[in-house]
């Protein structure tokens, strides 16, 4: 066991505990976007940074392991400034409208993305995919660049709305070795032009995608959505507060995956799996995630 101090309180945690987990035992919640309980920490979004005495820079609470004698501050001016700035940088460059969890953080930190300037017009389809490392158009600074771009719809099961993508790496990790191991997507390009991409930006239907939808399952900002959800949102009929969530077991093979059925108006509108289910670890296959269409919505 390791003893450390967080915000003036002593806490004892098992070896290997992250600072985020240690803080949670004291009831201190840490904002995070790129961390997921069923994936290795990517430490990319930096919303979770905290101050560790003796460290020159702030450290990501999601990935940094607790060490004996650490003195940690989660609410210092430095921490608040960096968190606020990360949210302003994201808010000014990405469409966070479907990232509900961000709104209270923004409010409590006083984040104001608008001070980065008016948003630049969205890119045309394919424009961001064509950006090449080391080259970009000079800016006059009059507008703030964004990643906004048209939605990619190339299959019947889910859509990719990369204007909402914060590049948290979760979808790549879930598609890759940490879960599905299909490796259909990766981060391509560099810097602000980095994006999630198949090889040569090919449509998903020409890629290695097997439509397990584990990328959707881990996406924190709604950049990846099942078609059902996307269509309901387009119609303005997506109402999470009216949805029930029921855990049950997948009706297909004998592995016994827990499905969480999201039901709105007696219709299954989305299927997820709890990350703490021992069988799934939160991940599903195409049948579990999309194979429930045979349950006809009432009245159809």
């Amino acid at each position: 066991m390791i003893e450390l101090e967080i915000d003036g309180q002593k806490v004892t945690v098992p070896e290997g505990t992250t600072l985020m987990e240690a803080a949670a035992t004291l009831g201190i919640s840490t904002p995070t976007l790129c961390w997921a309980p069923n994936l290795d920490p990517a430490t990319a979004c930096r919303v979770c940074v905290v101050e560790v005495e003796g460290s020159r820079v702030l450290v990501p609470a999601c990935g940094r392991k607790a060490e004996a004698g650490m003195v940690v501050r989660t609410n210092s001016d430095r921490v608040r400034t960096s968190r606020k700035m990360v949210l302003e940088l994201l808010g000014s460059s990405v469409d966070l409208s479907a990232a509900e969890q961000v709104k209270p953080w923004m409010a409590s930190l006083g984040a104001d993305p608008s001070r980065m300037g008016p948003a630049a017009p969205p890119s045309a389809a394919g424009e961001r995919d064509a950006a090449r490392a080391g080259h970009h158009h000079a800016t006059d600074g009059a507008t703030a660049a964004t990643v906004c771009q048209p939605i990619k719809v190339d299959n019947e099961l889910y859509v990719r709305d990369y204007g909402k993508c914060i590049l948290c790496y979760k979808c790549v990790d879930a598609c890759g070795e940490q879960a599905q191991a299909s490796f259909a997507i990766a981060v391509a390009g560099r810097g602000f032009d980095a994006r999630i991409s198949t090889e040569l930006d090919k449509p998903l239907t020409d890629s290695a995608c097997v439509y397990c939808g584990n990328c959707i399952g881990v996406c924190p900002t709604g950049a990846l959505q099942p078609v059902t959800e996307h269509e309901l949102r387009q119609e303005g009929a997506w109402e999470p507060e009216r949805q029930t969530q029921t855990d049950t077991i997948c009706p297909y093979c004998g592995v016994g995956c827990t499905l969480t059925l999201h039901v709105q108006d007696d219709r299954i509108v989305k299927v997820t799996s709890p990350h703490d289910a021992s069988v799934t670890g939160g991940h599903l296959c195409i049948k579990g995630r999309f194979g429930t269409r045979f349950v006809a919505p009432r009245g159809s």
Binding site: T43, A44, C45, R46, V47, S82, M85, V86, L89, L90, S92, S93, A133, G134, H135, H136, I166, L167, Y169, V187, G189, R190, G191, F192, D193, A194
Partner: peptide
Amino acid sequence: DESCGQCVPCRV
């Protein structure tokens, strides 16, 4: 140009 794009502070 040279930011790798991995973390938000640097990328944006």
